[in-house]
């Protein structure tokens, strides 16, 4: 116990500041209603849906919750059920196996809700394009609000993407 506490004290706060200047990796597709913005201001629950990614994107998404990026400081946290979620974070090209699941997840999420598609695959199907197993990009299956580009996108980009979806941080 003492050693653990010592270590905690030695490290101090590890969280990095977020630079919100760069937003070119983020592409807003759908104008989110003002209501959504007002509601989800500082409390956002995310349900992550892996619709067939190579898990590269997942690695970066997991990094969001670590002490360095600490998405929780913005009130952004991951939940276990789409019923609790406000935002779906979808990765990968949607495979035929995951098509129904993705649609059902969208269906299960209470309104108002947002969808952020993460990674190049989500937009263009990336290297998987043309495969027999692919049903199409995410926006073919569910309405997408924001695309975050990158293969995989960095955690900071992800955070920017999510915050852009909420559209509450001023773009300078």
């Amino acid at each position: 116990m003492p050693t653990l506490l010592q270590k905690i004290l030695r490290v101090g706060i590890a969280t990095e500041q977020l630079d919100l200047a760069e937003t070119d990796v983020v592409q807003v597709v759908r104008q989110v209603e003002a209501k959504t913005r007002r509601l989800l201001g500082r409390s956002l629950a995310i349900r992550e849906v892996d619709a067939g990614s190579c898990n590269g994107c997942e690695l970066e998404i997991t990094a969001l919750t670590n002490p360095l990026y600490d998405s929780e400081r913005f009130g952004i946290h991951f939940v276990a059920s789409p019923r609790h979620a406000d935002l779906l974070l979808v990765t990968g090209p949607v495979t035929r196996h995951m098509e129904v699941a993705l649609r059902k997840t969208y269906e299960a999420t209470p309104d108002p809700k947002l969808v952020v598609a993460v990674g190049d695959c989500a937009k263009t199907c990336g290297v998987f394009k043309g495969s027999y197993a692919i049903a199409g990009s995410v926006d073919r299956i569910v309405p997408v609000d924001v695309f975050v580009a990158g293969c995989p996108p960095e955690p900071t980009d992800l955070l920017r993407g999510i915050l852009t979806a909420l559209d509450r941080w001023p773009k300078s």
Binding site: S81, P82, A101, K104, T105, E107, A108, P110, D111
Partner: peptide
């Protein structure tokens, strides 16, 4: 007070 009925959440089960 809106309420929508939908399937049970079965983790995307068919």
């Amino acid at each position: 007070f809106r309420l929508r009925r939908s399937e049970s959440w079965g983790c995307g089960l068919t």
